[in-house]
Write a protein that binds this DNA or RNA. Structure first.
Lengths: 234, 234
DNA sequence: GAATACGCCATATCGGCGTTACGTTCTGAC
DNA sequence: GTCAGAACGTAACGCCGATATGGCGTATTC
């Protein structure tokens, strides 16, 4: 039923419009329905619930977010891409504050996967950094750190009427977190070369894979590398 | 009217209880009123609005937060106090997730000053650090950085069912932000000694004041110090 | 080809919510 | 003692999310 899909999309867009324009960041199912000219039960047939509608709006927000990211990343320098990704995240938050809070603020009973998928995008970008030896910690850990800092900074910028988006604080935070996560460009003075080399190999395995090893061998190698890079675990 | 005050307090506590126990982090004015045995109009006489009630709950949350902070800080080592303050913030967030989001997540039309007052507490703690020469940036800037990172990390910990509050990520973030804000313990290799000395003097002026200068002179001195530590402004 | 069974939609409705108008009662001052 | 004014409970309004119900088109079957 393509008509159902287009109707879904129309309702999601109407809900997002109302979310952005409403003064209290709220959406009424009635208003969404009559904005697209249908009655309320169809909303409950398509989304099951108001939460379902909001989850769909959040996921649609992720689509726009991912499109924005796909349009700007991949310049060849993964670290530069990472910096641009932080700034793009901040720009997205300031352009769509209500949608941003819907996506990145904890909602009880939410089934949206927007945050997790943004994390996956970030892990991918960080894995590219690790593949060139630019990462000091595991991509997943770095991703949680970066995303948390990014969300905290974005919410701060949303809450205050900042002077036309002064990026000084955002860049400060970005440098603080990145310097704790990225290796120095001149990687000669390497504190733990085994650690970083293992991280790098792990990332390359994730990115390109290998045909030299059997799958079970590669899996075992991955576990060994994880034990090197994360020695606290068993 | 002390009865009004105690009634106010009772309603605030009832609202906070319902906020913490409700599955969707919502509060109904009716439920709050009948929990304390009054009718709805008294709520509107005392708080004016549902938003007013929520603002009062947030401010009451700040009182508990400030009490917790006052109980643990001031050990004599301002930097150690700062570390403990970060961990205390995280503990408060995990102990009261709904109240925490009410206090630290942007709400449209909110008139609560909880976040600002937490910022003030943080600025005070950072000024004590600056007074012993442990700060590299202005206390206000450092406070915004630290609070944003703290909120972002706390929301991340609230959103995921973390493994019983694994503090590894929180401590990583704490170290990342603090190392960008605090000076090295061995402050011999000082990149910009004028800058740090000016910061230190400014903090001491804020903490203890001076009788050697007339008020207008002290005010002018403050402006000069600010121009040294923040040269981008006019 | 007609009758029937089935899925979809709009109407109407329900209970609950935030908010407020209104009549009553209580208090305190003259 | 009387009266003004404030505080209170009752009841209601309008809006919300969610759902039961009846009509209508369509497809299937004999």
């Amino acid at each position: 039923m393509p008509e159902d899909d287009s109707l879904r999309a129309a309702m999601i867009e109407a809900a997002e419009r109302q979310l952005a324009s409403s003064s209290d960041h709220e959406v009424a199912t009635r208003a969404v329905c009559e904005a697209v000219g249908v009655s309320q039960p169809v909303l409950y047939r398509l989304f099951g619930d108001k939460r379902g509608l909001l989850d769909a709006v959040a996921d649609h927000g992720y689509e726009r977010y991912a499109a924005l990211k796909a349009a700007q990343e991949q310049t060849g320098d993964p670290v530069a891409d990472l910096h641009a990704g932080w700034d793009g995240h901040m720009a997205f938050a300031q352009a769509n504050p209500a949608l941003y809070q819907l996506m990145f603020t904890p909602r009880p009973w939410s089934r949206s996967t927007a945050r997790e998928r943004v994390m996956d995008l970030l892990v991918a970008a960080l894995t590219r950094c690790a593949a060139v030896g630019a990462l000091k910690v595991e991509p997943h850990t770095a991703a949680r750190l970066i995303l948390s800092a990014n969300v905290g900074t974005a919410l701060d910028h949303i809450a205050r009427p900042a002077p036309s988006g002064d990026p000084a604080l955002s860049h400060r935070m970005r440098d603080a977190v990145f310097s704790h996560v990225l290796a120095e460009p001149a990687a000669a003075n390497d504190a733990d070369p085994l650690h970083t080399a293992a991280l790098r190999l792990h990332a390359q395995l994730d990115l390109t894979g290998t045909e030299a090893l059997e799958p079970v061998e590669a899996a075992l190698l991955r576990r060994w590398l994880e034990r090197i890079t994360h020695p606290t675990r068993s």
